[in-house]
């Protein structure tokens, strides 16, 4: 059984993981392996996403099978695994009667940072999530959006190797949601922390994640590599024209694009690798046609998710 840390090991390996609470099977024989920068857990409510995260944190013991995080066996090295994780739970989780900086500092020290470093990092984390001006306010007085941000701050204050985010955009208004997603993307892009994002919002997962695990009734309904998918389909384009224009069709075909007409004025194009969308705009200008919409179109996560939900 492998317990030692391995820099080259997959982020997460599920090895027949089964979890039962009482007589109910919550996770049923999950088998998967993920190595991406950001892994999405998708599924409807009750699919087992949160239970999977809690099991990885050691809150629930596996009934059968096991899991490895960065090559460490969950059943043997739960403490060591938790030392490398930053966890942002779905529900409210804070200590109401202390200030944000005190709260985040406490969490940093619990993660092992010396007192002074913990204080410095607490300030940094709160500024990073946009709570710099509110860091001396008691957490209990924060709005829902601020509480979400302070949860993120406590999760990342110790610079974890793996960040587990459970429904991070819950209860956020659109600007706050965008800010949260931008922060998560920024962390992902820095490449020093891997992310597991659990959400039932396809848009969030699609924006953040490279790999996706779709759960349904505690079992794996599907899993896909979005990064590879994006790479494979990056030249698949949908174009809406103001008016149908045969000259534009010919110009585009001359560029080497394959064309399928969906309806008058709506085209689906497969562009050769060397052709960019800029050349489509130039062709439109030359032929005097207006482009109303131009979408890089691929088999969307929604399509994949709906197929997974419809399948058995």
């Amino acid at each position: 059984m492998k317990t030692s840390p391995d820099q080259g090991a997959p982020v997460l390996e599920l090895d027949g993981l089964t979890v039962k609470l009482g007589k109910r099977t919550i996770l049923d024989h999950l088998e998967a392996s993920f190595s991406g920068r950001a892994i999405g857990l998708l599924g409807p409510n009750g699919a087992g996403k949160t239970t999977l995260l809690r099991t990885l944190l050691g809150f629930y013991p596996p009934t059968a099978g096991g899991a490895r995080v960065f090559g460490r066996e969950l059943s043997v090295a739960a403490k060591e695994i938790r030392a490398e994780i930053g966890y942002m739970p779905e529900s409210d989780a804070f200590i109401a009667n202390i200030t944000a900086v005190h709260f985040v500092r406490l969490m940093a020290e619990l993660s092992g940072l010396p007192s002074e470093a913990a204080l410095e990092r607490a300030h940094e984390a709160l500024f990073y999530v946009g709570l710099g001006e509110a860091r001396y306010r008691r957490v209990g007085t924060f709005s829902t959006g601020m509480k979400q941000m302070v949860k993120l701050a406590q999760a990342l204050v110790h610079g974890p190797r793996l960040l587990m985010l459970d429904e991070p955009t819950n209860g956020l208004d659109p600007p706050a949601r965008k800010r949260m997603i931008d922060l998560v993307c920024d962390i992902r892009n820095r490449g020093t922390s891997r992310i597991i994002l659990s959400s039932h919002l396809l848009g969030d997962v699609e924006m953040v994640c490279d790999e996706v695990l779709i759960l349904k009734n505690g079992a794996i309904a599907d899993s896909c590599d979005l990064a590879a998918d994006r790479q494979a389909n990056k030249h698949f384009v949908e174009v809406d024209l103001e008016t149908p224009n045969a000259e534009f069709d010919r110009a585009v075909a001359a560029l080497g694009c394959e064309i399928a007409s969906l309806e008058p004025g709506k085209l689906k194009l497969v562009m050769p690798a060397e052709v960019s969308t800029r050349e489509l705009w130039i062709a439109a200008e030359k032929t005097g046609v207006g482009i109303r919409r131009l979408d890089l179109k691929r088999d969307s996560l929604q399509d994949i998710f709906m197929r997974a939900m419809e399948g058995n």
Binding site: A83, S111, G112, P114, E124, G132, G159, D186, R190
Partner: peptide, 22 residues
Amino acid sequence: VYERIWRRYDGNLLPLKWRAAV
């Protein structure tokens, strides 16, 4: 602290057995 840049922590850590003291 106000630069809004996130970075990993590479310093020393308190041994696991002393975390309860926090």
